[in-house]
């Protein structure tokens, strides 16, 4: 796993949490599709990398999983946000905003002087 993957894992976790907050309980495939659609198909990664991220979030207690039935009556594992997950999402979102804001200032020096 290179550095890029680490960054991806970090942001992926945030995206997963946000997705679950927006859509409620959802299965892995649904989360993957949603992330892909939201990113405007800009993010084209293997869906497979999503599963270890889900596992990690679950081990850390931010999400929980449960077997259920999908819209078209299929068995699927549903993930949903826990209370700790909700808090973590807020925290990470805040941090992410800060980071992007700082980065934005760095990357647009012209505006700063104006």
């Amino acid at each position: 796993m290179g550095e890029r993957a680490d960054v991806w894992q970090g942001t992926l976790a945030l995206m997963v949490l946000k997705t679950l907050q927006a859509l409620g309980p959802l299965h892995g495939y649904g989360i993957a599709r949603r992330i892909e659609q939201t990113s405007g198909d800009l993010l084209a990664v293997n869906y497979g990398t999503l599963y270890p991220a889900l596992l990690k979030l679950e081990q850390e207690g931010y999400i929980s999983s449960e077997w259920g039935t999908s819209d078209n009556n299929r068995k699927a594992k549903y993930y949903k946000l826990t209370r700790a997950g909700r808090k973590q999402l807020e925290k990470e979102a805040r941090e992410w905003e800060q980071t992007t804001e700082i980065l934005a200032r760095f990357l647009a020096p012209g505006k700063e002087s104006a």
């Binding site: 299965h27 892995g28 495939y29 599709r33 599963y51 999908s70 078209n72 068995k75 699927a76 594992k77």
Partner: peptide, 17 residues
């Protein structure tokens, strides 16, 4: 088994789509 079932259901949904 759990993991295999999850993969199966993922693929099935994707194939259906």
């Amino acid at each position: 088994r759990d993991l295999a079932a999850e993969m199966d259901s993922h693929l099935e949904m994707h194939i259906k789509d």
